[in-house]
Amino acid sequence: MIRPLMISLALLACSGLAAAQSTPVGLWKSVDDKTGKERSLVRIAETGGHLVGRIEKRLDPTAKPDAVCGKCSDDRKDKPMDGLEVIRGVQAAGDGKVWTGGQILDPEEGKTYQVKLTPVEGGSKLEVRGFIGFSLLGRTQTWLRVE
């Protein structure tokens, strides 16, 4: 009697873990789609029903530790790159498999884009699509889940 109960509890815990992994919430390693280089660790969290992503650590060994977002034109102007909010206002779409409606910041250029986040491969990767106007007109990066 105890053994089937233990198996059921283990399966339930695994299914909950898989569901949690299929959301963008977590720590991600961003990878530049043009160069293939690892850029930063970005932590995505849910705050007030929206997803927010902040740079937790920059991975470029040549990055200046005191760098700021000098090209930003909004409230992030001259804010430190470490801790900078790069994803704002993203929400789950109708099916809960895609998150949209927010913006992503390219801190190197200071430009913001609409964003679509799609967990793939069981949530181990995140397709991050930045675009202007229509999703067809944009770029996609594939980020890797760290935790």
Rank of each mutant, 00 (worst) to 15 (best):
I2C: 00
I2A: 05
P4S: 03
L5H: 02
M6R: 07
M6S: 01
I7G: 00
L9S: 05
L11K: 03
A13E: 03
S15N: 07
G16D: 08
L17D: 05
A19M: 12
A19Y: 10
A19Q: 15
P24I: 09
P24R: 12
V25F: 06
L27K: 13
W28E: 07
V31S: 09
D32G: 12
K34S: 13
T35H: 11
T35A: 10
R39G: 09
I44Y: 05
A45K: 13
E46C: 10
E46M: 15
G48H: 09
V52R: 11
V52P: 01
R54T: 14
K57R: 13
P61N: 09
T62A: 14
T62V: 10
A63D: 12
P65K: 14
V68L: 05
G70A: 15
K71Q: 08
K71P: 02
K71F: 04
K71W: 02
C72E: 03
D78T: 08
P80E: 03
M81F: 08
V86D: 02
V86R: 05
I87K: 01
I87F: 06
R88F: 02
R88V: 09
R88H: 04
G89R: 11
V90N: 05
A92M: 05
A93C: 02
G94S: 13
G94M: 08
V98K: 10
V98L: 05
T100S: 03
T100P: 00
G102C: 01
Q103N: 00
D106I: 02
G110H: 00
G110I: 01
K111T: 01
V115Q: 01
K116D: 02
L117E: 07
P119E: 09
V120C: 02
E121Q: 14
E121V: 07
E121R: 14
G123L: 12
I132E: 04
F134G: 13
S135M: 15
S135K: 14
L136P: 03
Q141P: 09
Q141F: 10
E147S: 07
